[in-house]
């Protein structure tokens, strides 16, 4: 595996949702869910994408997979710009990139058996020549995620949350993808089950040379699983860096406060907490200049006027903040 080979490159990606009103459904405004983000994922790594609810991280994930159509921007994957693919080419490309969802209850069709759920991608892409071969493949995949073949005939409601999430992982694996976008894959699970799924994902990454985009709001989980971390706030990336860099030396004030806000499971651990004022503003009418300025403890005059540039401050440590520009 070549170091630093980019598997996925996102350039100036935007996703706006129209807000419609009135009898004629006129578009009166846009929710700028993802507003001009640029980043890349290297082959074989895990990029953690963190942010609070409504920051656009899930929308970003779905837009990259073209489950939502991008408003603007480029999505380069294995030398192709996904935005330009037609329906047929896109369907073919789906074998290469898969998604795992948050809710293990909503993400499995309640009226299909496990064999049909995991076998569906095999059917769609004609990956098996006979019914027997298909079922063997399904049993194989189930085995890799730690479920025995005896479960094949069962329906999703007969499983616990953790087992369902394994089924969701198996379905994604069935097409043998190179990239998996995991959208909050453990946040709906019980604490003692989360570790099982995280470990499984790490094992699979090694065994199948997978690259992950791991979307989550839980920074401890992201820190554990990621190689690099990207932080989103109100549709924008505010900071992207190597995990260690980001957690040891966060440059953006938002990242700093986010890190300090995490409750630590150690009563003897003392931190200096930066408590942010106020709430996340609405993405329909985001603040001018730097979107974080109304809550930023270090906001200056320029912050409300000029949007800071997202740039590299050395060793691929990207950030967007006027404070850094002065240095």
């Amino acid at each position: 595996m070549a170091e630093d080979e980019k598997l996925l490159e996102i350039k100036n990606l935007k996703k706006y949702f129209p807000v419609k009103e009135g009898v004629f459904r006129r578009t009166v405004a846009h929710v700028k869910a993802v507003d001009d983000i640029t980043f890349h994922i290297k082959k074989g790594e895990t990029l953690g994408l963190v942010g609070e609810s409504g920051c656009g991280k899930s929308t970003a994930g779905r837009t990259i997979l073209r489950l939502l159509e991008a408003t603007a921007g480029e999505i380069w994957f294995e030398g192709k710009n996904l935005v330009d693919l037609d329906k047929k080419e896109l369907r073919e490309m789906r074998k290469e990139m898969q998604i795992i969802f948050q809710d293990p209850y909503a993400s499995l069709n309640p009226r299909m058996t496990v064999a049909d759920i995991v076998g569906e991608p095999i059917d769609i892409h004609n990956l098996a020549s006979s019914k027997k071969e298909r079922n063997e493949k399904v049993a194989d995949i189930l085995d890799t995620v730690g479920l025995g073949p005896e479960y094949m005939k069962r329906y999703p409601h007969e499983f616990s949350g953790g087992q369902r999430q394994r089924i969701g992982v198996a379905r994604a694996l069935a097409v043998d993808p190179s990239l998996i976008i995991a959208d909050e894959p453990v946040s709906a699970l019980d604490v003692s089950i989360q570790a099982q799924v995280i470990n499984l994902m790490q094992d699979l990454q090694k065994d199948f040379d997978l690259t992950y985009l791991f979307i989550a709001h839980d920074l401890s989980v992201v820190k554990h699983i990621s190689d690099r971390v990207a932080v989103m706030y109100l549709g924008k990336l505010v900071e992207v860096a190597d995990k260690k860099e980001l957690f040891d030396d966060p440059k953006h004030p938002y990242t700093q406060s986010l890190l300090s806000a995490i409750p630590v499971a150690d009563p003897t651990y003392e931190t200096e907490r930066i408590i942010l004022e106020g709430d996340v503003p609405s993405p329909v009418d985001p603040p001018s200049g730097c979107r974080f300025h109304p809550r930023c403890p270090y906001a200056m005059d320029i912050c409300s006027e000029v949007e800071p540039e997202f740039k590299d401050y050395g060793d691929e440590h990207f950030a967007a903040c006027h404070l850094l520009e002065d240095e």
Binding site: A195, N199, S220, V264
Partner: peptide
């Protein structure tokens, strides 16, 4: 088991030690 199955923000762990099995019904 719980203490070692959760990722900790204040320290790095190579691997989480998951509690096997399911939460009982």
């Amino acid at each position: 088991g719980l203490m070692y199955s959760i990722p900790h923000i204040e320290k790095d762990l190579e691997r989480l030690e998951a509690i096997p099995g399911n939460v009982p019904n």
